[in-house]
Amino acid sequence: MRPLTEEESKAVFTKLANYIGKNLIHLIDRQDEPYCFRLHKDRVYYVSESSMRLGISVARPNLVSLGTCFGKFSKTGKFKLHVTALDYLAQYAKYKVWIKPNGEMPFLYGNHVVKAHLGRITEDTPEHQGVVVFSMKDIPLGFGVTARSTVDTRKLDPTAIIVFHQAYVSSTVIRFLYSPTPSDVGEYLRDEDTLF
Protein backbone atom coordinates (compact mmCIF):
# COMPACT_ATOMS: atom_id res chain seq x y z
CA MET A 1 0.00 0.00 0.00
CA ARG A 2 1.37 3.37 -0.97
CA PRO A 3 0.16 6.83 -1.99
CA LEU A 4 -0.25 7.49 -5.69
CA THR A 5 2.54 9.17 -7.59
CA GLU A 6 1.76 12.34 -9.46
CA GLU A 7 1.24 10.60 -12.81
CA GLU A 8 -1.01 8.04 -11.21
CA SER A 9 -3.11 10.67 -9.45
CA LYS A 10 -3.37 12.53 -12.72
CA ALA A 11 -4.69 9.42 -14.45
CA VAL A 12 -7.19 8.74 -11.67
CA PHE A 13 -8.38 12.33 -11.44
CA THR A 14 -8.87 12.77 -15.17
CA LYS A 15 -10.92 9.58 -15.29
CA LEU A 16 -13.03 10.59 -12.30
CA ALA A 17 -13.42 14.16 -13.57
CA ASN A 18 -15.00 12.74 -16.70
CA TYR A 19 -17.90 11.58 -14.55
CA ILE A 20 -18.12 14.00 -11.64
CA GLY A 21 -16.27 17.07 -12.98
CA LYS A 22 -15.43 19.64 -10.36
CA ASN A 23 -17.19 17.67 -7.64
CA LEU A 24 -13.94 15.74 -7.46
CA ILE A 25 -12.84 18.29 -4.90
CA HIS A 26 -15.50 16.93 -2.53
CA LEU A 27 -13.82 13.53 -2.65
CA ILE A 28 -10.37 14.92 -1.91
CA ASP A 29 -11.27 17.62 0.57
CA ARG A 30 -13.96 16.06 2.69
CA GLN A 31 -15.62 17.84 5.57
CA ASP A 32 -16.45 14.80 7.71
CA GLU A 33 -13.21 12.83 7.77
CA PRO A 34 -9.94 12.99 5.87
CA TYR A 35 -9.90 10.50 3.01
CA CYS A 36 -7.07 9.52 0.71
CA PHE A 37 -6.26 7.42 -2.32
CA ARG A 38 -3.99 4.43 -1.84
CA LEU A 39 -2.51 2.01 -4.34
CA HIS A 40 -2.29 -1.65 -3.43
CA LYS A 41 -1.55 -4.42 -5.93
CA ASP A 42 -2.28 -2.07 -8.86
CA ARG A 43 -5.68 -1.23 -7.42
CA VAL A 44 -6.66 2.22 -6.26
CA TYR A 45 -8.55 2.40 -2.98
CA TYR A 46 -10.38 5.37 -1.61
CA VAL A 47 -10.01 5.03 2.12
CA SER A 48 -10.47 7.07 5.26
CA GLU A 49 -7.34 8.09 7.09
CA SER A 50 -8.19 6.01 10.16
CA SER A 51 -8.69 2.81 8.14
CA MET A 52 -5.56 3.55 6.17
CA ARG A 53 -3.56 3.84 9.38
CA LEU A 54 -4.96 0.54 10.58
CA GLY A 55 -4.13 -1.00 7.22
CA ILE A 56 -0.49 0.04 7.48
CA SER A 57 0.09 -2.63 10.09
CA VAL A 58 -1.11 -5.41 7.79
CA ALA A 59 1.60 -7.09 5.74
CA ARG A 60 1.35 -6.56 2.01
CA PRO A 61 0.55 -10.15 1.01
CA ASN A 62 -2.09 -10.39 3.73
CA LEU A 63 -3.89 -7.20 2.82
CA VAL A 64 -6.79 -8.10 0.52
CA SER A 65 -8.65 -4.84 0.30
CA LEU A 66 -9.30 -1.65 2.19
CA GLY A 67 -11.76 1.18 1.87
CA THR A 68 -13.51 1.39 -1.48
CA CYS A 69 -11.81 0.07 -4.59
CA PHE A 70 -12.10 2.75 -7.27
CA GLY A 71 -10.44 0.88 -10.09
CA LYS A 72 -7.19 -0.54 -11.24
CA PHE A 73 -4.18 0.37 -13.28
CA SER A 74 -3.67 -1.79 -16.33
CA LYS A 75 -0.20 -3.05 -17.11
CA THR A 76 0.17 -0.26 -19.65
CA GLY A 77 -0.52 2.33 -16.97
CA LYS A 78 -4.08 3.20 -17.93
CA PHE A 79 -6.61 3.59 -15.16
CA LYS A 80 -9.87 1.63 -15.37
CA LEU A 81 -12.77 2.49 -13.13
CA HIS A 82 -14.51 -0.40 -11.38
CA VAL A 83 -18.17 -0.59 -10.58
CA THR A 84 -17.26 -0.44 -6.91
CA ALA A 85 -16.73 3.29 -7.38
CA LEU A 86 -20.38 3.61 -8.39
CA ASP A 87 -21.53 4.83 -4.97
CA TYR A 88 -19.31 7.90 -5.15
CA LEU A 89 -19.85 8.49 -8.86
CA ALA A 90 -23.62 8.35 -8.44
CA GLN A 91 -23.46 10.73 -5.51
CA TYR A 92 -21.54 13.41 -7.38
CA ALA A 93 -22.40 12.64 -11.02
CA LYS A 94 -22.86 15.68 -13.22
CA TYR A 95 -24.61 13.94 -16.07
CA LYS A 96 -27.10 11.15 -15.50
CA VAL A 97 -29.13 8.79 -17.62
CA TRP A 98 -32.25 7.04 -16.37
CA ILE A 99 -33.33 3.88 -18.13
CA LYS A 100 -36.76 2.35 -18.30
CA PRO A 101 -37.50 -0.86 -16.35
CA ASN A 102 -37.46 -2.94 -19.54
CA GLY A 103 -33.97 -1.66 -20.29
CA GLU A 104 -32.50 -2.51 -16.91
CA MET A 105 -31.87 -6.19 -17.61
CA PRO A 106 -30.25 -5.66 -21.03
CA PHE A 107 -27.93 -3.09 -19.48
CA LEU A 108 -27.09 -5.32 -16.56
CA TYR A 109 -26.19 -8.11 -18.97
CA GLY A 110 -23.55 -5.91 -20.40
CA ASN A 111 -25.30 -4.33 -23.38
CA HIS A 112 -25.19 -0.70 -24.34
CA VAL A 113 -28.16 1.53 -23.62
CA VAL A 114 -30.32 1.96 -26.72
CA LYS A 115 -32.65 4.83 -27.30
CA ALA A 116 -35.78 2.71 -26.80
CA HIS A 117 -34.73 2.09 -23.21
CA LEU A 118 -33.84 5.68 -22.44
CA GLY A 119 -36.14 7.15 -19.80
CA ARG A 120 -34.56 10.48 -19.03
CA ILE A 121 -31.24 12.13 -19.64
CA THR A 122 -29.61 15.22 -18.17
CA GLU A 123 -30.11 18.14 -20.48
CA ASP A 124 -27.08 19.39 -22.41
CA THR A 125 -25.07 16.23 -22.01
CA PRO A 126 -22.26 16.48 -24.54
CA GLU A 127 -20.98 13.68 -26.72
CA HIS A 128 -18.50 11.17 -25.24
CA GLN A 129 -19.28 12.34 -21.72
CA GLY A 130 -19.10 10.00 -18.75
CA VAL A 131 -22.57 9.44 -17.35
CA VAL A 132 -23.99 7.41 -14.49
CA VAL A 133 -26.85 5.12 -15.43
CA PHE A 134 -29.82 5.00 -13.04
CA SER A 135 -33.01 2.98 -13.05
CA MET A 136 -36.24 4.97 -13.03
CA LYS A 137 -36.35 4.42 -9.26
CA ASP A 138 -33.07 6.32 -8.95
CA ILE A 139 -30.97 3.28 -8.19
CA PRO A 140 -27.54 3.56 -9.74
CA LEU A 141 -26.93 0.64 -12.10
CA GLY A 142 -23.60 1.47 -13.64
CA PHE A 143 -21.84 4.02 -15.72
CA GLY A 144 -20.94 4.59 -19.31
CA VAL A 145 -20.04 7.08 -21.99
CA THR A 146 -22.56 8.88 -24.15
CA ALA A 147 -22.51 8.11 -27.84
CA ARG A 148 -24.44 11.25 -28.79
CA SER A 149 -25.22 14.56 -27.19
CA THR A 150 -28.68 15.11 -25.74
CA VAL A 151 -29.76 17.24 -28.68
CA ASP A 152 -28.65 14.64 -31.20
CA THR A 153 -30.54 11.82 -29.47
CA ARG A 154 -33.87 13.35 -30.47
CA LYS A 155 -33.36 12.50 -34.13
CA LEU A 156 -32.14 8.96 -33.62
CA ASP A 157 -34.09 5.76 -34.25
CA PRO A 158 -35.06 3.62 -31.24
CA THR A 159 -32.32 1.01 -31.76
CA ALA A 160 -29.48 3.52 -31.81
CA ILE A 161 -26.97 3.31 -28.99
CA ILE A 162 -27.09 6.21 -26.57
CA VAL A 163 -24.66 5.12 -23.86
CA PHE A 164 -21.73 2.75 -24.23
CA HIS A 165 -21.62 0.72 -21.07
CA GLN A 166 -18.40 0.78 -19.06
CA ALA A 167 -19.36 -1.01 -15.89
CA TYR A 168 -22.57 -2.28 -14.38
CA VAL A 169 -23.78 -3.83 -11.17
CA SER A 170 -24.97 -7.38 -11.66
CA SER A 171 -28.55 -8.27 -11.02
CA THR A 172 -27.81 -9.96 -7.71
CA VAL A 173 -26.65 -6.71 -6.30
CA ILE A 174 -29.77 -5.01 -7.52
CA ARG A 175 -31.84 -7.57 -5.67
CA PHE A 176 -29.93 -6.71 -2.55
CA LEU A 177 -30.47 -3.07 -3.15
CA TYR A 178 -34.19 -3.60 -3.57
CA SER A 179 -34.39 -5.55 -0.32
CA PRO A 180 -35.08 -3.34 2.70
CA THR A 181 -31.72 -4.04 4.31
CA PRO A 182 -29.02 -4.44 1.72
CA SER A 183 -26.71 -6.55 3.84
CA ASP A 184 -24.10 -7.85 1.49
CA VAL A 185 -23.56 -5.75 -1.57
CA GLY A 186 -20.22 -7.43 -2.23
CA GLU A 187 -21.60 -10.05 -4.57
CA TYR A 188 -20.64 -8.90 -7.97
CA LEU A 189 -21.51 -11.92 -10.03
CA ARG A 190 -19.41 -11.51 -13.11
CA ASP A 191 -16.18 -10.03 -11.86
CA GLU A 192 -16.20 -10.94 -8.25
CA ASP A 193 -12.95 -12.90 -8.49
CA THR A 194 -11.02 -10.11 -10.18
CA LEU A 195 -12.74 -7.07 -8.78
CA PHE A 196 -10.71 -6.76 -5.61
Binding site: P3, F13, I28, F37, M52
Partner: peptide, 14 residues
Protein backbone atom coordinates in the same frame (compact mmCIF):
# COMPACT_ATOMS: atom_id res chain seq x y z
CA UNK B 1 6.07 8.84 -0.78
CA UNK B 2 5.75 7.19 2.62
CA UNK B 3 2.35 5.67 3.35
CA UNK B 4 2.15 7.26 6.76
CA UNK B 5 2.45 10.79 5.41
CA UNK B 6 -0.03 13.35 6.69
CA UNK B 7 -3.28 13.02 4.76
CA UNK B 8 -3.87 16.78 4.97
CA UNK B 9 -0.64 17.40 3.06
CA UNK B 10 -1.64 14.81 0.51
CA UNK B 11 -5.04 16.45 0.01
CA UNK B 12 -3.32 19.79 -0.47
CA UNK B 13 -1.05 18.31 -3.14
CA UNK B 14 -4.07 16.70 -4.82
Amino acid sequence: DPTEKSVADEAKAS
